[in-house]
Design a protein around this nucleic acid. Structure first.
Lengths: 230, 230
DNA sequence: TAGAGTTTGAGAATGTGCTCACAAGCATCT
DNA sequence: AGATGCTTGTGAGCACATTCTCAAACTCTA
């Protein structure tokens, strides 16, 4: 019946709400208004209400939302009621950091394999896992039912890593390598590029100084890089 | 004269074009069409042309863009013709990885200081820098003219880190801590949250399996997580 | 039970970004 | 020089996202 079409922008904010809500239960809060949830998540309240309304009518007018119930509904929508097995491809500095990152396990993302192409690293222990051979990627991915691949290789190796993950049936890939990679249509791909974020900051910083120069000029029209205030 | 208002979405893509263009010069390409630049950057050609047109008319009809000249113009627009001094706050696994990350220095981002609140870490060498005391943050930031602060602390420490960076006159902050932080209006803030990206992937993965169930149902309307294809 | 005070949910208006489509302009060939 | 082919730059239309606004629905108090 109900057409389920949650906007992409909303999906990207749900994890933010979820984190705020979890913080709240830990502090003993049982009910929350869109206003205070908005403050905690760093957005405005109209956006919170619109976003939550896509999930259904889970609030109570004049009262707010039940924190526990909202956590359950958002978790369900995001698919966090089950655990996801992850494989990290490329165990350099970044791969190491990701393997030890506590934030993953907290949301049900289990790192179950680390692979690297460098023979000298194979066998090395990281946490309670050992680094395995990149050549065995497909076998390992199938054996351990990996559903999310995390690419933390140097840029030139990223495409091959993606190809082999896809060949092994992995349908979701998070790419940290500074390279554009191609994946089959049925594979979801997201990327995080650390240096791109710095370049964006650089743009706004540079524009600020440029405007400083023409301080007496006309009024600034565009808005700067989003600050946290609504 | 000319009103300079480059859309936020365009700014976010300029670094992507820049990287592709740099790759191209290294392979000896001197001219590029919007079509091939689009392919390299993983977007479509109309978007490339619109984005580049905000910078000015730097292309030649019937020919394309001069790679070197475009690199210069984009770098200038992004403020990459100068170097930026960065300070990393919090040197755990992630801070370590960031300190050693090659992609930063390649674009003129110099990490000039590492600070941590854990006394046992102070003095420890990371690359050719030593970890210094979080308490000295303001002094160090001023002495070394830090303009970008990178927060890689645990979530509870993030707000204090931001406050002290702002107090030291740092006007751009990149936050890796999984927490929403407040900064003054004149400070630009961007955030990268590793576990949020995984949660977004989880959403689309979960929806895929849900749809598998009603395979014989009506046609899928929304689009899945963006694949790399245009 | 009635009235005052809150807060949600959603329709409407606005704003931003994306894609299409094509005229304008350049190079090359005859 | 004129014709042909290619590629840019941009106006127009469309799609998506955000914000505004307010009726509806709830709690609490008397």
């Amino acid at each position: 019946m109900r057409e389920r079409a949650i906007p992409e922008a909303t999906v990207a904010r749900l994890p933010l709400y979820l984190r705020s809500l979890v913080d709240m239960t830990e502090r003993g809060t049982h009910t929350v208004s869109s206003e205070s949830l908005a403050f905690a998540a760093g957005v405005n309240s109209a956006k919170v209400r619109k976003d939550l309304s896509y999930l259904g009518s889970y609030g109570t007018r004049g009262v707010g939302y039940d924190v526990e119930y909202l956590i359950y509904q958002i978790s369900r929508e995001l698919g966090l009621t089950q655990d996801w097995n992850c494989m990290i491809v490329g165990v350099g500095n970044l791969g190491h950091a990701l393997a030890n990152y506590k934030g993953f396990s907290a949301r049900g993302f289990r790192v179950v394999a680390l692979v690297d192409a460098d023979e000298r690293k194979i066998g090395e222990a990281v946490g309670d896992l050992a680094i395995e051979d990149f050549e065995d990627l497909e076998r390992i991915a199938k054996e351990r039912q990996v559903s999310i691949g995390i690419i933390a290789t140097p840029a030139p190796a990223a495409q091959e890593a993606a190809d082999r993950l896809a060949a092994a049936g992995v349908k979701s890939i998070l790419n940290f390598a500074p390279a554009v990679i191609q994946v089959p249509d049925d594979v979801s791909l997201r990327k995080v590029d650390l240096s791109i974020e710095l370049q964006i900051l650089s743009f706004y910083e540079q524009r600020k100084s440029a405007l400083e120069g023409l301080r007496r000029g006309k009024r600034l029209t565009g808005s700067a890089a989003k600050s946290t205030r609504p």
